[in-house]
Design a protein around this nucleic acid. Structure first.
Length: 575
RNA sequence: CGGGGCGUAGCGCAGCGGUAGCGCACUUGGUUUGGGACCAAGGGGCCGUGAGUUCGAAUCUCACCGCCCCGACCA
């Protein structure tokens, strides 16, 4: 494609609506434009990236034995009512009525639709396993769309669903899909990690999230510095760092701590480390108050508390609620003398002595508090977030907490949907059995953003060659000089004939500097620069976007050099 | 939904009671051409929408709408 004819509207200044690098760069490099909050148009360059990711997904899905289908965006309410998700899903499920006042939902995911399809066609165990996927538009009426395409309301997703005869077969399929996912993200040139996760509303027995490691990620991930353990912070477990050294001692004492209501403030006042504190937090779970105790240097993990209580809803209590439960203002809650409330305590507190806690009175804390002696044994459990430096549950080495962008998730669903929707087959023994399901998603448009989030610098995007809109950016620096233009034209032909995807900057009106800036912004992996200055000595320049150095090559060697450089680039995208 | 910020030319911004501005982009002509060229001449605005205050509103007041950020939420 010639730049002079292409629709690639690059922008010099950062649009004010964008905050994170991928959003800024997708707008600046002309990959997309916004229509309204959470809705975007993909321009030719953006669409090319999407198509490349789709192609990688298709190849790997087929390799893993899955077949492509296409389902509608509008889905009838009855299907959602069958599984109860018409009620449970909440406002994120975009509901619409047709002219006959019939209810529909714009599909946020397609378990119901696919299960309905399969139950109508599935008769015998001989038809299994069945593994179907689609790449299609999904709609979720997000409370707060954010960060451009990272969290948008309409987005492209690959969703796949597997049906197996039994649990063992489903497990096998699940791990085949996990392997396929690893290959997909590797082929996209991403630095990612499959992490253990909480399974959430979709249900099922186990699940992995595929996280692209990037600072702007919305999810926190705990990763082992030594082995392959990695888990979403919601679920991660770590062995706590040791307690402060205090031994069991005398009775607890009241200390005056006027105006000091954080662990930090009181710790500074008493000259004690945060790990010597019991942090006491009040939650409201399904309308009832619950007190959760964690060590002063730890934070409560609400998901773990919620799962332990089997609660549908949980939230930190308001100041008034805290007063109701503890008879003290926020900051002075403690377990000693507290009654009539369920108390959960994190295991990291176990075995420690002489704790400091709130005294249930304004401006009073207690020191020398002992579990069991000064208040009844609480319900113990894992209720905290892993912190940097905790021990890995697998190998014992140090855990690190980082950020990730969730680009994919795999679930083993079991029979949750096949049971609710009677998706059964006739077994070898002549009896009806429920199919055992799995489901597998990849956010395609989010993957585009995640790729940029991981591959950019101050000048622009640095595409991996596998998903770059074009592989080679050919720049004609002096198009007004006939010899230069002629040689650049020839390279445009040769490169395309050699099978490269080439964007040819043949613009008469743009200066050389302008072309360089655009090339850096667009970020294709290889650029070939033909200019009068080089040609005087018979040289053409070849530059890799991810490197600073420029190679100067005699005209006859250009094709070989491009090939060599391309091979190096492809190594970043090879499983 | 709670908190905060912003809506003025295509983009980025200034102006904050008295004639609507700047830079970039765009059009025309000319000169240029190796890191976002220069000169000259142009075109482009319901100052988000509506009501109010005022002799007079982009500017003050109120309401609404849109967009962005933090939080809550997130198969």
């Amino acid at each position: 494609m010639r730049v002079s004819k292409a629709f690639i509207p690059t922008v010099k200044e950062t649009p004010q609506e964008a905050e994170i690098p991928s959003h800024k760069l997708m707008l600046r490099a002309g990959l997309m434009r916004k229509v309204a909050a959470g809705f975007y148009e993909y321009l030719p360059l953006g669409q090319k990236v999407i198509l490349k990711i789709n192609q990688i997904i298709r190849e790997e899905m087929e390799r893993a034995g899955a077949q492509e289908v296409l389902m509608p965006i509008m889905t009838p309410a009855e299907l959602w009512q069958e599984t109860g998700r018409w009620q449970k899903y909440g406002k994120e499920l975009m509901r619409v009525k047709d002219r006959h006042e019939r209810d529909y939902a714009l599909g946020p995911t397609h378990e119901e639709v696919i299960t309905d399809l399969v139950r109508r066609e599935l008769k015998s165990y001989k038809q299994l396993p069945m593994n179907l996927f689609q790449i299609a538009t999904k709609f979720r009426d997000e409370v707060r769309p954010r960060f451009g395409v990272m969290r948008s309301r309409e987005f492209l997703m690959k969703d796949g669903y597997s049906f197996d005869v039994d649990d063992a077969a489903a497990d096998k399929t699940y791990w085949i899909m996990v392997e396929a996912y690893k290959r997909i993200f590797k082929r996209c040139g991403l630095n990612f990690s499959p992490v253990e996760a909480d399974s959430g509303l979709i249900g099922g027995s186990f699940t992995h999230e595929f996280m692209v490691l990037a600072d702007t990620g919305e999810a926190a991930v705990a990763m082992c510095s030594s082995c392959d353990y990695a888990a979403n912070l919601e679920k991660a477990f770590g062995n706590p760092t040791p307690h402060a050294t205090a031994a069991a001692g005398g009775p607890f004492q009241e200390v005056s701590t006027p105006g000091k209501h954080t662990v930090e403030d009181v710790g500074a006042l008493l000259k004690l480390p945060a790990s010597q504190f019991i942090k006491t937090l009040v939650f409201i779970a399904d309308g009832k108050p619950v007190v959760v105790l964690v060590r002063g240097d730890h934070d409560v993990n609400e998901v773990k508390v919620q799962n332990h209580l089997q609660a549908a809803e949980i939230a930190l209590a308001s100041g008034e609620k805290v007063y109701e439960v503890t008879k003290a203002p926020v900051g002075f809650a403690g377990p000693v003398g507290l009654s009539g409330v369920k108390i959960l305590a994190d295991k990291a507190l176990q075995g420690g002595h002489q704790y400091v806690t709130g005294g249930l009175k304004k401006d009073i804390h207690l020191t020398g508090v002992e579990f069991g002696r000064d208040f009844a044994e609480p319900e113990w459990g894992d209720f905290r977030n892993v912190i940097n430096g905790d021990g890995c549950p697998k190998c014992g080495k140090e855990l690190k907490v980082g950020r990730g962008i969730e680009v994919g998730q795999t679930f083993k669903l079991g029979t949750k949907y096949s049971q609710a929707m009677k998706c059964v087959y006739l077994g070898e023994d002549g009896k009806d059995k429920e199919a055992v399901m799995g489901c597998y998603g990849i956010g395609v448009t989010r993957t585009v953003a995640a790729t940029i989030e991981q591959h950019y610098d101050a000048d622009g995007i640095i595409w991996p060659i596998a998903t770059a809109p074009y592989q080679v950016h050919l720049l004609c620096l002096n198009p007004a000089e006939p010899e230069v233009a002629k040689i650049a034209d020839e390279f445009y032909e040769k490169l395309r004939q050699a099978g490269y995807e080439v964007l040819y900057d043949d613009r008469m009106e743009a200066s050389a500097g302008f072309k360089f800036k655009d090339a850096d912004l667009l970020g294709f992996p290889i650029s070939v620069r033909v200019g009068a200055r080089g040609l005087k000595e018979g040289l053409v320049e070849i530059k890799r976007r991810r490197e600073k150095d420029v190679a100067k090559v005699v005209v006859a060697d250009v094709m070989n050099k491009v090939k060599e450089v391309a091979e190096v680039e492809w190594k970043f995208c090879t499983p």
